[in-house]
Amino acid sequence: MRVFIAGATGAVGSRLVPLLVAAGHDVVGTSRSAERLGDIEAAGARGVVMDGLDAASVRSAVLEARPDAIVHELSALGGVAPDLKHFDEQFAGTNALRTRGTDHLLAAAGEAGVGRFVAQSFTGWPNERTGGPVKTEEDPLDPSPTSASRQTLEAIRHVERATTEAGGLALRYGGLYGPGNVIGRGGELLAMVHDGKLPLVGGGTGVWSFCHIDDAASATAAALTRGGPGVYNIVDDDPAPVSEWLPELARIIGAKPPRHVPALVARPLIGEHGVSLMTKVRGSSNAKAKRELGWELRYPTWREGFRTGLG
């Protein structure tokens, strides 16, 4: 099929383009910058410049491409570790792409008669922070998010609602790691762990679900031909508390064990949202994605992925 990837030079898009080309698909990928089109074309796709926040730009790019499917991977993070005290402010660009950008793409998809629409979402901290440690797609998102994350959670709700109401699939990626990510060789978060600047806050009881970047790409490829409309958690098999994965990551990269910091001490530095990530968040189950998308993970656990897949 002809696949239109909005955001083809981003974290997932850059891994997805060669995967789809190798599978025989005709791929058109977008970038905000003409300078990045060479990366798309080097992977075997056709590159086009598109501004995801400009309705006319999106409409023109989609109608000219005449795709069978659209994959929405637009973001504006650029591989920077989150500023947890100013979370919404840092995610403002991505939130605009999750709201206005999604609406522009869906409008163009409807006009072009696109049959399949797959959009990027996120799981982990958006989960309700009560009850069991691992949530499914049937569990609600957090009804009482931290004050620093309310706008970002609302943008996630929007992209999921708009996508599924249009008959599409919203893929909730877990914490991504691997080449080109903050948890990857040269990434900012990995550097913080290496330098002892990422402490274990409180009891480290927050549960995280990870996903290697290549597994996120393979799940996205599977969603182009499998699965019905709805949301899917794209995470590995091994949700783990911070008290487990953070010391193990430090050990794997040869860093000293993270120091322990009480939550009350950490709060002025990383805010309510940062403390929540370390102590309250819930993980996610991938059972639905494995069952309905026929998805098989290259890295079923972050334990192996951290050892061999950081890049």
Rank of each mutant, 00 (worst) to 15 (best):
A240G: 09
L176Y: 09
D88F: 08
G175L: 13
A148P: 09
I183C: 03
G271F: 02
D142M: 09
G168D: 00
G79L: 08
A107Q: 12
D26Q: 14
S14D: 10
G186H: 13
V58L: 07
A23C: 10
G305A: 06
L246Y: 06
I253A: 07
L169P: 02
S284G: 06
A8H: 07
A219G: 14
C211F: 14
T205G: 14
G110E: 12
A155L: 00
S14W: 08
D103M: 07
R46C: 08
A56L: 13
A45S: 06
R157C: 02
I213K: 06
E138H: 15
G294H: 10
A119Y: 02
P18Q: 06
A96H: 12
I40S: 02
G202K: 01
E160N: 03
G7T: 08
R15W: 10
E160W: 01
L74H: 04
W208N: 02
V49C: 09
L20G: 01
D139G: 06
G254C: 10
G187S: 08
A155D: 00
E296D: 14
D139I: 07
L189M: 14
I5N: 00
K256P: 14
P133Q: 07
A56I: 12
N181C: 15
D214Y: 13
Q151P: 12
E292V: 11
L77M: 15
W208L: 00
V48G: 03
S14Q: 13
R172S: 00
G311E: 05
K85C: 14
I183Q: 02
C211M: 15
A148V: 07
I234Q: 01
S33I: 12
T30L: 01
T279H: 11
M50W: 01
A221M: 04
R36M: 11
F91Q: 11
D236G: 07
N286H: 10
L310Q: 04
F4V: 05
L153C: 06
A65P: 06
F4K: 00
L106M: 04
P239A: 05
T99G: 04
G174W: 03
S121H: 00
F117E: 00
L293N: 04
G184F: 01
D51H: 15
L297I: 13
W125E: 04
L141M: 13
G309Q: 07
E111K: 12
